[in-house]
Write a protein that binds this DNA or RNA. Structure first.
Length: 474
RNA sequence: GGCCACGUGGCGGAGUGGUGACGCAGCGGAUUGCAAAUCCGUGCACGGGGGUUCGAUUCCCUCCGUGGCCUCCA
C-alpha cells in the first residue's frame, strides 16, 4: 500500500513518491534552544519521529535521512546568554547556553522514545552556507542590501504566498507592523542584519552581523539534503512566515520549482482546554511532566490524537493513556515466544497520513484477539486458537516497537525493605482470610492500598489455594 | 480587521453521500467472603440555520464557538 501524506502545499493527501528511494530526505524545524522545552515543543518531535520510523520501515533504515536543526542564534538566545554568561564573548556565550540547553532537550526527547535524527545541524555552523545563498539571491535580483541589512525582495518572486495561500493584498490589508524605512517593500524580510558590538556576530560581505530567522533552514537543508528534498515538517505556526520565506529563499537561490515536495504541519496543543501560557499557570516543560509520568505515557497520549488535529493535553487523558499502554504490555507479557510480526493493519493506518489513532484502534483489535478469544471445547481447534492469539500478540508487540514503545512493562524500582513489608502484610492477610476474619483481611488490604499496592486474589488451579499477587499503582 | 484550520456520545477519538468504528468511564451479568483483575452484555453523539440530493454527519452557503497566523511562538 502506498504512503499518503497531507501536503500543506496542495491542501490534500498526496501520494508520497520519494525523489530517491535510496535516500528519502526529511527536514524538520527543531528547537530554539534558550530554555527548557515545553510539552507543546514535544509534539512535532514525536510526530516526526513516528514518520521517521515509518519511512525507515518502508524504505530501509539506511535509506532515510532525517535532519532536525538546532536554532542556536536568535534574539531570545542572545538576551539569555548575555544575562547568564556576562563575562563570555557573545558568540561563546550563546554557545555555552545552547549546548547546555540542547543537551537537556536531547535527554528529554530520548525519554519520550524519539530516535536521534540522522543529522542535527546548528545554525551557527552554517554561516558560510547562509552567506552563499544570500549572495546568490542578490546576484539573481531577489535580494538587496540596505543599511547593513540584506533583505529578500518579496515582489521579486511571482508566486510568493502559495504555501500559506495568502495574497500580498491580503497581507497588506492586515498589516499592522511598522515598516522599517530601508525596506523597498513592506513585505520584504531580513536575510542578514547588523550586530552591535555586544551582540553575537559574524563577518560577512555586508559587515559584521547575524542571520535572519529563515535563512538558517534554507542553508542547513541545502547542505544536508540538497537543493530539493522530500518532506519538510514543523508546527502549523511555522507555515507563515517561516516556511513561506524558506521556500522563497531556497527556490529563488537555486532556481527550482520546489524546495520540498511535501510540507507537513502538526496542530497546536492546549492544556486542560486552555491555551498553554505562563500567565495561566498551565505551562509545563517536558522535564516537569517526566517527573510524574513515564515518557512512554506522554508519547502515547500525543499519538492518541491525529497529528493535524488540535490536541487537548489533560491529566485524564494521561491516565487513560497509561492504562491502555499497560493493557497492551500485559497482553504481550502473557506470551513467552514474542519475536514480532508485521501488522498490516497498523501499517495501513499509518500510511494514511500518519493516522495514529486508527493504528491504536487496530492495536486494540489485536489486543482483543490475543487476550479475548475464549476456547470453548473441541480439542482439534485448541492449537489453532492458541496460534491465532500468539500471532496477534506478536503483531501487537511489533506495533508497539514500530511506534517507539517498549514491550516491557514499566518496572517501578522498589526497595527490598518495601517488598518484604508487602509480602509480610499479604501473608498476614491470607492468614486472616483462612480464619474467615474478613474484617482484619480487609483492613490489611486497605493498609496496602494506602501504600499504593493493589492486590489480586486468584485460585491456584492445581492446589485450590488462594494466591495473592500485587502491583504498585501510581 | 484580513487569512487559515477545527467543532462527533460523560470523556478521548477515527470515519463515511445511505440508518455512526474503537478506547476510557458508566450500567447489568459471570467470578469473588467483599474487592481487584478478567470475561460476557449494554445505553448515550455528528454546534445552530439554510441549500444541493431520492437521501448528508459526510458536499455548498451562512451564523455561532474554539484555536492558529498576520508581532523571529512547535
Amino acid at each position: 500500500m502506498g504512503l499518503k501524506l497531507y501536503n500543506t502545499l496542495t491542501r490534500q493527501k498526496d501520494d508520497f513518491v520519494p525523489i530517491d528511494a535510496n535516500n528519502v530526505r526529511m527536514y524538520v524545524c527543531g528547537p530554539t534552544v534558550y530554555d527548557f522545552a515545553h510539552i507543546g515543543n514535544a509534539r512535532p518531535v514525536i510526530v516526526f519521529d513516528v514518520l521517521f520510523r515509518l519511512l525507515r520501515h518502508v524504505y530501509g533504515e539506511a535509506h532515510v535521512t532525517y535532519v532536525r536543526n538546532i536554532t542556536d542564534v536568535d534574539d531570545k538566545i542572545n538576551a539569555r546568554a548575555m544575562r547568564d554568561y556576562p563575562n563570555d564573548k557573545p558568540v561563546e556565550a550563546i554557545r555555552h547556553l545552547t549546548e547546555t540547553t540542547y543537551a537537556q532537550f536531547e535527554k528529554d526527547v530520548t525519554e519520550l522514545g524519539c530516535l536521534k535524527p540522522t543529522v542535527t545541524p546548528r545554525a551557527t555552523e552554517h554561516i558560510a552556507e547562509m552567506i552563499a545563498i544570500i549572495e546568490r539571491l542578490i546576484a539573481g535580483g531577489h535580494a538587496y542590501v540596505a543599511e547593513g541589512h540584506a533583505l529578500f525582495h518579496v515582489p521579486a518572486m511571482a508566486d510568493y504566498g502559495a504555501l500559506a495561500r495568502r495574497s500580498l493584498d491580503d497581507m497588506m490589508a492586515g498589516a499592522r507592523v511598522e515598516v522599517a524605512p530601508y525596506k523597498r517593500d513592506p513585505m520584504d524580510f531580513v536575510l542578514w542584519k547588523p550586530s552591535k558590538d555586544d551582540e553575537p556576530g559574524w563577518d560577512s560581505p555586508w559587515g559584521r552581523g547575524r542571520p535572519g530567522w529563515h535563512i538558517e533552514c534554507s542553508a542547513m537543508s541545502w547542505k544536508h539534503l540538497g537543493e530539493t528534498f522530500d518532506i519538510h515538517g514543523g508546527g502549523v505556526d511555522l507555515v507563515f512566515p517561516h516556511h513561506e520565506n524558506e521556500i522563497a529563499q531556497s527556490r529563488c537561490a537555486f532556481h527550482r520549482d520546489v524546495m520540498a515536495n511535501i510540507f507537513m504541519h502538526n496542530g497546536f496543543l492546549q492544556v486542560e482546554g486552555e491555551k498553554m501560557s505562563k500567565s495561566l499557570g498551565n505551562f509545563f516543560t517536558i522535564r516537569e511532566l517526566l517527573n510524574d509520568w513515564p515518557g512512554e505515557v506522554l508519547r502515547f497520549n500525543m499519538l492518541k490524537t491525529h497529528y493535524r488535529a488540535p490536541i487537548d493535553f489533560t491529566v485524564r487523558g494521561l491516565e487513560e493513556s497509561a492504562a491502555i499502554l499497560t493493557k497492551f504490555k500485559k497482553t504481550v507479557a502473557k506470551f513467552s515466544r514474542i519475536s514480532g510480526m508485521e501488522s498490516v493493519g497498523v501499517i495501513s493506518a499509518l500510511s494514511d497520513d500518519l493516522n495514529t489513532p486508527a493504528a491504536i484502534t487496530e492495536m486494540n483489535h489485536l489486543n482483543s484477539i490475543a487476550s479475548g478469544v475464549t476456547y470453548d471445547g473441541g480439542a482439534a481447534k485448541l492449537s489453532e486458537v492458541l496460534e491465532r492469539e500468539e500471532e496477534a500478540a506478536n503483531k501487537l508487540a511489533w506495533a508497539l516497537k514500530l511506534l517507539g514503545f517498549s514491550t516491557q512493562e514499566n518496572k517501578v524500582t522498589l526497595s527490598a525493605e518495601f517488598r518484604n513489608q508487602v509480602t509480610a502484610l499479604i501473608a498476614a492477610r491470607l492468614e486472616a482470610r483462612k480464619a474467615r476474619n474478613f474484617a482484619e483481611s480487609d483492613r490489611l488490604r486497605d493498609e496496602l492500598a494506602a501504600m499504593g499496592v493493589v492486590l489480586k486474589d486468584a485460585k491456584n488451579k492445581d492446589t485450590g489455594e488462594i494466591e495473592t499477587t500485587w502491583e504498585v499503582k501510581r
